[in-house]
Design a protein around this nucleic acid. Sequence first.
DNA 1: GTCTATATGATGATAGAC
DNA 2: GTCTATCATCATATAGAC
Lengths: 192, 192
Amino acid sequence: MARQSNTREQILHHAAHLLMTRGYSGFSYRDISTQLGVKNAAVHYHFPAKSDLAMALVDEYRQVLRQQTSQFMAYGGPALPQLEGLFRFTEVQCEKGRCICPFGAFAVDYNEIPEEVRDAMEAFMSDSVNWLTRVLETGREQKEFVFSGDPRARAMGILASLQGARQMARIHQQEVLRPVIGQIRLDLGLIA
Amino acid sequence: MARQSNTREQILHHAAHLLMTRGYSGFSYRDISTQLGVKNAAVHYHFPAKSDLAMALVDEYRQVLRQQTSQFMAYGGPALPQLEGLFRFTEVQCEKGRCICPFGAFAVDYNEIPEEVRDAMEAFMSDSVNWLTRVLETGREQKEFVFSGDPRARAMGILASLQGARQMARIHQQEVLRPVIGQIRLDLGLIA
DNA sequence: GTCTATATGATGATAGAC
DNA sequence: GTCTATCATCATATAGAC
């Protein structure tokens, strides 16, 4: 893979942050270009339309998750560290300025993004649900987790909790993410 | 309370829908005025700034929840119907064109709304958490629910699940809200 | 009291300079 | 290949007509 230009990387970096803090229709090319010290049209060179930038952002976020999950998917192994990795990943992203999930941001502006991006989001979400379902199944087989019901439904419930918690955290004065994660642990029999 | 003008009500109605489908910074006064057959400035008469409209939207949504909860808060009673009411309320809102929670929309655009609105949102969220905490506590005392751990943490977990599920539902092809609600029921001992 | 005409600035995007 | 000058359009918001 050819090395991406520095400007392109910087654009993606700033755009990812802006997406999480202001939402998709809440930031402009000018916001990015100002921080980079160039004109907004320079951003248009790297990403002709805003939807191209959206597509790149989804791809990038997808790769981040893949880096954390591909190993497990390929080789199997203990399930608990996988789950803990998901918790830590969420906590770290959440603490950085109370950022909401890029996914949540796109979900809100879902009707304003092109179908191509929506498909990528759907694929991303399917991957996430499949991965966590597999983690839960494996963990239950190996007696790491104790829970009843359908693993897939539980996977969806956990992902929904985390996503919702990240949004509530932005509004609520009180801590949200920590108790919600504690709750998930409890329901998986991880706390005596 | 003096009766509100018809135009004002209509503006609020359309704005509420637009908020849930396109997000706060995803709709404009023109979007509203066009649907009403007037000029955008007419909307500015009723709500001088967009933040005034935002404030009214939060207040309105808050009243909707109060209508469903005030009775319980005041008189006590069986907890299960309260919880079922929350589920039904969420399902109905979600089915109407896969609308996300107005709250989730505002959370994304949190950095673009004035402090006054943020305070109202915080108050709204506190009310919601307090209400559900009380429902869970009462339900556990009356043996309607069976669960372990802190009722408040569980209340936050449930609300986060529902909010996250509404967003996932927009993206995911597969059904999300139903399995997530099923999961909540399971963890409250409502399914044998 | 209610709405329309108008202003001012920001937005995404194009054509062309270096 | 990379960026700047410029555009048409849309945003929120004001001043003033009915």
